[in-house]
Design a protein around this nucleic acid. Structure first.
Length: 834
RNA sequence: GCCCCCGUAGCCCAAUUGGCAGAGGCAGCCGACUUAAAAUCGGCACAGUGCGGGUUCAAGUCCCGCCGGGGGCACCA
């Protein structure tokens, strides 16, 4: 028997040979270029999260791209015009740190890594459109970061303000809230401190409601976990602002509360110790108070977030010697400063209702302040809960209002409405909404990022760089000290910094901060649509054709940050009229992580599995197949639990099917073995559904089954010349094209065809799915007692008679009277005796 | 503390969404082929679904309560 494949050993599956054979072919044919505007096929935009160019690919990449490829290759087979691009998220600290360490230019390091990673991806046979590659560190890309920034600025969505910011003392840079994890710098695990700086922000909070409400529309196509995390992060709360007048101060103070019904239970007020308000109130107090306050604030500011967040931390604070007046009952409330109130949430001040808020109660206990119950909360038996003043357990539940004058006797919702109505009438308060979400701090004091396109002019103030002068390119690194020092390295690039005001032409200075790299990744999916466009970020016609992304694939690590920001950008661009959709990613698949021996791979654990070694040993196809077969995509894979060698063995087995087929290409399968054909078509039908449900592991299992059945047909059934065997082998090749491109291409070639990736998903013949007989289970009291082979269209009554006529069943029933007989034709009958 | 997800053979995982617990694989064992081994082929065994209740003719699947594992949020007023 001769093989159609001249380069490989005709009887051995040699994955090295297959890789050597097909890689240059694909490099030449570029099979995954997306079709142009004249392509009549329906479009599908499949996007993998783009990588940071860290050098070689690792196991995590291998999983992500294997899974993304299944989806992209599937839709191509289904006749879609698929856009599946790739690029690099290439600004950021590692390049800068490498540059500092080796005293090189980060551009050189970055481009070298990109080249290396691209080669790895090509070997890995990723189905990318290589004509659309982008890298965010290139001026052709970040030009449009600056353009979008300018548009944001024009709409008031980009602004500068001084505030206390998260500061990483090691990286010497500002961090967004999202980059602070458990009080530590996300990147280097250094405890984060606070620093007052003037920084650039994007006004995400303006979109808080839409970012939250539009999550409803993603229900079902995004992982519920991610939706929950985003909801949690935005954390909208409904409540009321209440205005308290302050003795000895003209301006009153507003506080925010979600429980206006407990207003009469307020026994003191607390302002955030690190707020301007606290300093101002303390400034007018007596010397002793002022001193105590200064000492306290110094301690608070010195504390890291780690200290702040430690649970069971005792409440601390200072009495400011000042008093506020409760707007509903006129009571005089002492004002305290404490760090348990946050300066940047609500108004940085609260009314403390110790009876019904545990934090306030803890504080009241520590400072010996009064506690007054204003809601009578009952337990399950209807008894009032113990008095918080004695139990030191705040009662947060629902109940009737007491000790509140005119509001007594009202239930929670009525009481809230009544109090808010009164506040409104008296002009001392109103309903409000608050969010945990803060504005997005985008400026960084680092070199390797997009320069903020603003010029600071003594006369004109902040002036955006006009569009026709963009991009503002990063100056060369020569002569710059890139080491972190709390000030942007760009400030030292004198020639670059000194410029003229675009408005008045007077000497002026460039803004020296660079943008957070999350800006880069907030819109890159749009740039892919027209990556070489020079007069705009993307072509609106191409956006209309492709966007939004139909299927996004990536790690759950970006569940909050990246996805929230990209959603924000999309909504902002929509408002500006640049895109006609409001959500960037219609569906999201989060793949799990690859672990080893039960934990994440890390150098310190010494449990790193090197992808290149796995590829050398088992081949690209086997590694890809293993990634897909290991389990549901969102589950973590423990490499110790899976078997790439098993995958390689299976692929060899599949490959041999194609080798053994002896019928001619194009043979009509109609005359082939019916039971094999039925199995083939059943597999086809099932696998389509499974892929669309991301059940890739099951697809692989079904393909294995089909391979087993076909093997049997060749060896001890229909034989290698049967047309059904050819049909089955071809279907195996097509199914495998999603997982094991080299093997399937070689099979396809042996079967006498070209280009398996575009073979098309074969039509399922519905007649072959109809089974001639079905096994019907007959139960007695839920226990299986007999099986009957029946017509799939058997009627209920007929089936009942058949079941009752069975000898086994008769014996089991032993003449007992029947209570009921449940018939689920054609698969089940359950007989229940009295 | 609050919220979410998951517990099925020694292991990774299926189970038509309430209808025969087992599809696929790993590891194991037996056999065929072989001088032998590898490779290949054929076959075998293994759990009653974390535990306890409940609903139902019928529960891995639905409900309640525990146990175990994982994740998210955490002074957000």
């Amino acid at each position: 028997m001769t093989s159609a494949n001249p380069e490989s050993d005709e009887n051995r599956y040699d994955f090295h040979a297959l890789e050597r054979r097909w890689q240059p072919v694909w490099a030449e044919t570029q099979p995954f270029k997306a079709g142009g505007a004249d392509d009549a096929r329906p479009t599908k935009y499949v996007l993998d999260m783009f990588p940071y160019p860290s050098g070689d690919l690792h196991m995590g990449h291998a999983e992500a791209y294997a899974l993304g490829d299944v989806i992209s290759r599937y839709w191509i087979q289904r006749g879609f015009n698929v856009l599946h691009p790739i690029g690099w998220d290439s600004f950021g600290l590692p390049a800068e740190n490498a540059a500092i360490k080796n005293n090189t230019d980060p551009r050189v390091w970055t481009e070298a890594n990109i080249a290396q990673q691209r080669a790895s991806m090509e070997r890995y046979a990723c189905s990318f459109d290589w004509d659309r590659v982008l890298a965010t560190h290139r001026p052709e890309y970040y030009h449009w970061n600056q353009w979008i920034f300018t548009r944001m600025y024009e709409r008031g969505l980009a602004y500068r303000k001084p505030s206390l910011v998260n500061w990483c003392p090691k990286d010497q840079t500002v961090l967004a809230n999202e980059q602070v994890v458990q009080g530590l710098c996300e990147r280097c695990d250094t405890p984060v401190t606070k620093k007052k700086l003037t920084q650039w922000y994007f006004k995400v909070t303006e979109y808080a409601d839409r970012l939250l409400d539009d999550l409803d529309g993603l229900e079902g196509t995004w992982p519920s976990k991610v939706i929950a995390m985003q909801r949690n992060w935005i954390n909208r709360s409904h409540g009321a602002d209440v205005v308290f007048s302050i003795e000895g101060r003209d301006e009153p103070i507003s506080i925010y509360t979600t429980r206006p019904d407990t207003l009469c239970g307020a026994t003191f007020m607390v302002v955030a110790a690190d707020s301007d308000l606290a300093s101002e109130l303390a400034a007018d107090a007596d010397d002793a108070t002022r001193q105590a306050f200064d000492t306290y604030v110094a301690a608070v500011k010195g504390a890291t977030d780690i200290d702040r967040m430690s649970t069971e931390r005792p409440k601390t604070g200072v009495f400011l010697g000042r008093y506020a007046t409760n707007p509903v009952n006129g009571e005089r409330l002492p004002i305290w400063a404490s760090d348990y109130v946050l300066a940047d949430y609500g108004h940085g001040a609260i009314m403390a209702v110790p009876a019904h808020d545990q934090r306030d109660l803890d504080f009241a206990r520590a400072m010996e302040l009064p506690v007054r119950t204003v809601v009578d909360v009952k337990d399950e038996e209807g008894n009032s809960l113990p008095d918080p003043a004695e139990s030191w357990i705040a009662t947060g539940g629902d109940g009737l209002v007491v000790n509140s004058g005119e509001f007594d006797g009202l239930a929670k919702t009525e009481a809230i409405a009544a109090v808010v109505a009164k506040l409104n009438a008296d002009g001392v308060g109103s309903e409000t909404t608050n969010y945990r979400l803060r504005d997005w701090l985008i400026s960084r004091q680092r070199y390797w990022g997009t320069p903020i396109p603003i010029v600071h002019c003594d006369k004109c103030g902040e002036v955006p760089v006009p569009d026709d002068q963009l991009p503002v390119e990063l100056p060369p690194t020569e002569g710059l000290d890139l080491k972190p020092k709390g000030k942007s390295p760009l400030a030292a690039a004198t020639d670059w910094v000194n410029t003229t005001c675009p408005k008045c032409s007077a000497p002026a200075l460039r803004d020296t901060d660079t943008m957070d790299t999350f800006v880069d990744s907030s819109w890159y999916f749009l740039r892919y649509l027209s990556p070489n466009k020079t007069d705009g970020p993307f072509d609106p016609a191409e956006a209309a054709r492709w966007a939004p992304v139909d299927q996004y694939v990536g790690g759950v690590t970006h569940a909050i940050l990246h996805l929230l920001y990209a959603r924000f950008f999309t909504k902002a661009l929509n408002d500006m009229g640049y895109v006609d959709f409001e959500e960037p990613f219609l569906a999201l698949l989060n793949q799990g992580m690859v672990q080893m021996d039960g934990s994440a791979m890390s150098k310190s654990r010494g449990n790193i599995v090197r992808l290149s070694e796995q590829l050398d040993e088992y081949g690209v196809d086997a590694v890809r197949l293993t990634m897909a077969f290991a389990g549901p995509p969102e589950d973590d894979i423990d490499w110790a639990d899976v078997s790439p060698s098993g995958s390689a063995k299976f692929l060899a087995r599949a490959w041999r099917l194609a080798r053994d087929v002896t019928s001619e290409p194009g043979t009509d399968p109609a005359s082939g073995d019916v039971s094999l054909r039925a199995h083939t078509h059943k597999t086809l039908a099932e696998c389509a559904e499974l892929v669309e449900g991301f059940r890739f592991n099951v697809v692989v299992a079904r393909t294995m089954e089909l391979v087993n059945v076909t093997r049997k047909a060749i060896d001890s059934g229909a034989g290698p010349a049967d047309p059904a065997v050819r049909e089955a082998a071809e279907v195996v090749a097509i199914l495998l094209s999603m997982f094991a491109p080299y093997c399937s291409e070689d099979m396809w070639s042996m079967l006498g065809h070209d280009n398996v990736a575009h073979a098309g998903y074969p039509e399922v013949d519905p007649e072959l799915l109809v089974e001639e007989t079905v096994t019907c289970v007959v139960q007695v009291k839920g226990k299986v007692r007999d099986r009957l082979e029946v017509d799939p269209n058997v009627g209920e009554d007929a089936l009942r008679e058949l079941a009752l006529a069975s000898d086994v069943i008769k014996r089991a029933l032993d003449g007992a009277e029947l209570r009921t007989v449940i018939v689920r034709a054609p698969k089940l009958v359950n007989i229940v005796p009295m």
